[in-house]
Simulated assay, not measured.
Amino acid sequence: MGLFRKEKKLDQDSMKEGVGLITLTSPTSVIAEQFRTIRTNIQFSSIDQKLRSIVFTSSGPSQGKSTISANVAVTWADQGVNVLLVDADMRRPTIHQTFQVPNKKGLTSLLTEDEFDFNTTIQKTPVEHLFVLPCGVVPPNPSELLNTKKMDKLIVELTKHFDLVIFDAPPVISVTDAQILASKVDGTILVAPQGIADKRSVIKSKELLDVVHARILGTIMNRVKPENTGGYYGGYYGGYYGAEESKK
């Protein structure tokens, strides 16, 4: 038995058109409010240590982690926080399509060229205080690029220039990219869609993150059916569960 449900097909739409930014298009909606609640819960999950870098990942593909990371980034920027959203999913990049920015240069360029050139790689967005670093040219060896001292140095430099750096990473089980990134940043968020990510895959993802001593801040359950939420905030994004709650 595999960890993924075979009938689930990969969503190609996000790679072609980007993900939906409901926090930007409908900021007063219930779902946008849920994203703000998630942001607040993440902030309070790390009172003793200021978060400067976070990874969003999931157990498997097409589970909504790019949608959540982009919308949470918007809500943080709305607070006046200078945010950089990095497309670290160098296998299935979406951020350049979501924010309609050039993708000729990006994270790949910074990790393969001699010097960091932020002027040609980091792009402004329509959201004040929000910037994005697209993937750039898709490389043949994403894991090898991420698992370098240059990546360590890049994270240090980015956190000097921005208040918060958010990495949209590939699924944990599929490839090692998320594990590598999780070992380098201040915190990791695991996205688990109801009815798609089964319990075994989520548990396996946590085990893989524990191996690299990742600091798991919590889990976001999305695609929750309204009748299962039992409250005003029922809907597509069900809620955020802190690390202690996630163990239950």
Rank of each mutant, 00 (worst) to 15 (best):
K6C: 00
H96L: 08
G242K: 04
N41Y: 02
L146D: 01
K248P: 00
P93F: 04
T121F: 08
T188F: 05
P170G: 02
G18A: 08
T148Y: 07
L145E: 02
V30E: 08
V30G: 00
S29I: 02
Q12A: 12
D13S: 15
Q12G: 03
I47Y: 13
F99T: 01
P171K: 09
G235E: 09
F35Y: 13
T188L: 03
H129D: 13
L111H: 09
G80D: 11
R200Q: 12
F118W: 07
E227W: 10
K65S: 01
I196N: 07
I95S: 01
I216Y: 06
G2S: 10
L133Q: 07
P226G: 00
I38S: 09
S53E: 03
Y233V: 00
L217W: 05
Y241N: 00
I122F: 07
E144N: 06
L146T: 03
S29R: 05
K8E: 09
L181E: 01
D13W: 10
S29E: 00
I220H: 04
T94F: 06
I22E: 11
T120N: 14
F167H: 07
P27K: 10
F116E: 06
T94M: 08
L110Y: 01
K16S: 10
E115H: 15
S53K: 06
Y232R: 13
V137M: 14
N147S: 12
R52V: 02
